[in-house]
């Protein structure tokens, strides 16, 4: 294999990893606050179309990313009102959000089919970003670097700041947090909004960087992979980064298998691998019998303060 091919493969992996890393980080924070939002796929699509639409109108991809974050967060607020205010079932509501986001993004996207958006200009000088070798480090969209920077920031927030401590406390024991005097619902709104914004940016990576154009259902199930990734990572940020790249490699193998039979297994096998790996990771965690799973104790449970 030549160096060119290796670099192309590496850049494919980075490209495939970025959206699930972004959405996974957002979902990790949401789940750490005790909320299971299965609407990641829908929020990614809403982010994808919002980012795309804003960029079409403003010709500014930076504003587009902001729009994507806003679109993802706004759609997550729909979910938040239902599960936090009306205590609806989180699993059912999350699934509904995915269906809703898929449909609404397709509807909005009708008038954007065939349009194109200006790409991000590189944040590094062309000598580096176009360099045949160094592009493997410097040749990406700013969203890629944003995703990577967000990993240590999220870890620092969760484990070193007071706000992060409170967020984890709310996910660990909502009633205790409430009795101490923290606003469980308020913290969860913020966490859901963050999850929505990150999923939205992850979705925009498809419509603004990978293609860059709009096609309905263009996230192609990556929201579900992001959800599996959070579980695979055992709700830990460091492991989430490693897991995202691991899943990214599996997805790249799927692509190569599809494109050129460039693999010793059918592409469907690789498509199923992230989920199989998640099952395997869960089995290992469970077999070790420790609290290695690190799952927030209140995950998915509605908070009813009166009882």
């Amino acid at each position: 294999m030549t160096l060119d091919l290796i670099i192309a493969a590496l850049m494919t992996v980075v490209g495939l990893t970025t959206p699930i890393l972004l959405a996974g980080l957002g979902e990790l924070v949401t789940e750490k606050s005790g909320v299971l939002n299965l609407g990641v796929e829908g929020m990614m699509l809403m982010g994808a179309i919002s980012g795309f639409a804003v960029t079409v109108f403003t010709f500014n991809p930076w504003l587009g990313v902001l729009g994507a974050a806003f679109g993802g967060a706004a759609s997550s607020m729909l979910f938040a009102v239902l599960v936090l205010q009306l205590n609806s079932n989180q699993v059912a509501t999350g699934l509904a959000l995915t269906i809703f986001g898929t449909g609404l993004s397709s509807l909005i996207g009708l008038s954007f089919v065939g349009r194109i958006v200006p790409p991000f200009s590189s944040i590094f000088p062309a000598a580096l970003s176009r360099h045949p070798v160094w592009q493997v480090i410097f040749g990406y969209s700013p969203i890629v670097y944003f995703a990577l920077i967000m990993v240590p920031i999220t870890a620092w927030f969760l484990h070193r700041t007071r706000a992060g401590l409170i967020l984890r406390a709310v996910g660990e024991n909502d009633h205790s947090a409430h009795s101490i005097g923290y606003s469980v619902v308020g913290v969860r709104y913020a966490a859901i909004a963050f999850g929505g914004a990150m999923a939205g940016i992850g979705g925009a990576y498809f419509s603004m960087v990978i293609t860059p154009m709009w096609a309905e259902k263009m996230t192609a199930g990556r929201g579900w992979i992001a959800l599996a990734l959070v579980v695979f990572a055992g709700w830990r940020t460091g492991r989430l980064l490693a897991g995202a790249y691991f899943f990214g490699i599996l997805m790249a193998l799927e692509l190569y298998a599809k494109a050129a039979g460039f693999s010793f297994m059918p592409s469907q096998f690789w498509a199923a691998m992230p989920y199989l790996m998640t099952v395997a990771a869960l089995t290992i965690i469970s077999a070790r019998g420790t609290q290695g799973a690190n799952a927030p104790a209140c995950l998915g449970k509605p908070f009813l303060p009166s009882t």
Binding site: L165, A169, E172, N173, S176, A177
Partner: peptide, 13 residues
């Protein structure tokens, strides 16, 4: 009103 998975110090904080 304690948080099982956290340390004594975090609980007090």
């Amino acid at each position: 009103s304690l948080f099982e998975a956290m340390t004594v110090l975090e609980n007090i904080a």
